[in-house]
Simulated scan of single mutants.
Amino acid sequence: MKSLLIAASLIAMPPAFAAIPMLNYDCPNDVQIHTDENGPVYINGQEAKVTQDKNNTVVAKGEGVTVQITLNDDGTASVSYTDPDGNTGVCDPAEGD
């Protein structure tokens, strides 16, 4: 019974990702990235599927775009993207942030 309860609690727990800060980034080709603190990640206003790539890197996929968010040791984030055509680029903080 105890192992069943532990298994059930693991299923109900959301996946643990690197602490995602609240971000608003603009990328080339009209790609906008928004994250709430600790997730979720939105690409062009649509919630993306998020996976952990490395301890300090989160990968989000949605709207045909793959976004890589790397949390730097100084607490800042580096954000890059790949669009459906294979174009890649670095994203910058949205103006006003």
Rank of each mutant, 00 (worst) to 15 (best):
D85G: 11
G62A: 09
Y42A: 09
T51G: 04
P93Y: 11
V79E: 03
T35Y: 02
T57L: 05
Q52I: 05
P21M: 08
P14G: 07
N29R: 14
E63L: 06
L23W: 06
P84R: 11
V79K: 06
V58C: 03
T66A: 11
V65R: 00
D97T: 15
A16W: 15
K54W: 08
G64R: 07
L71A: 01
G96A: 11
T82L: 12
P84D: 08
S3N: 12
T76C: 07
L10E: 11
T35G: 03
D92S: 14
T70Q: 11
Y25M: 08
S78M: 05
Q52N: 10
A16G: 09
N29E: 14
A12T: 12
V50K: 01
V58L: 06
D97P: 01
Q52K: 12
Y25N: 02
P28G: 14
L23G: 03
C91I: 05
N72Y: 02
T35P: 01
L5H: 08
G89V: 04
D85P: 00
V59Q: 01
D30Q: 13
H34G: 04
M1P: 03
F17W: 12
S9E: 07
I20Q: 05
P14L: 10
V41T: 05
F17M: 07
N55I: 04
N56T: 13
C91F: 06
K61P: 00
I6Q: 15
T70V: 07
S3Y: 13
N38M: 08
D85I: 02
S80F: 04
V79A: 04
D97Q: 15
M22G: 13
K54C: 01
G45W: 05
Y25D: 03
V65I: 14
A60I: 00
G62I: 03
T82E: 11
A12E: 07
P93W: 10
D74S: 06
D74V: 02
T70L: 04
N38K: 12
A19L: 10
D92G: 05
Q32L: 08
V41I: 15
A94D: 04
G96W: 07
Q52E: 11
T82P: 02
I20T: 12
C91N: 05
D26C: 00
M22W: 10
N38R: 09
N72L: 15
N29H: 14
T57P: 01
V67S: 00
I69T: 04
T76Y: 07
T88Q: 10
A94M: 09
N24L: 09
M13G: 11
H34D: 10
K2S: 11
A16P: 02
N55S: 09
D97V: 13
L5K: 14
D30W: 05
Q46K: 15
V59G: 01
E63A: 11
G96Y: 11
L4Y: 05
A60H: 01
Q46A: 10
G39D: 02
E63F: 03
A94H: 10
V79P: 01
A48S: 13
K61Y: 06
P28Q: 12
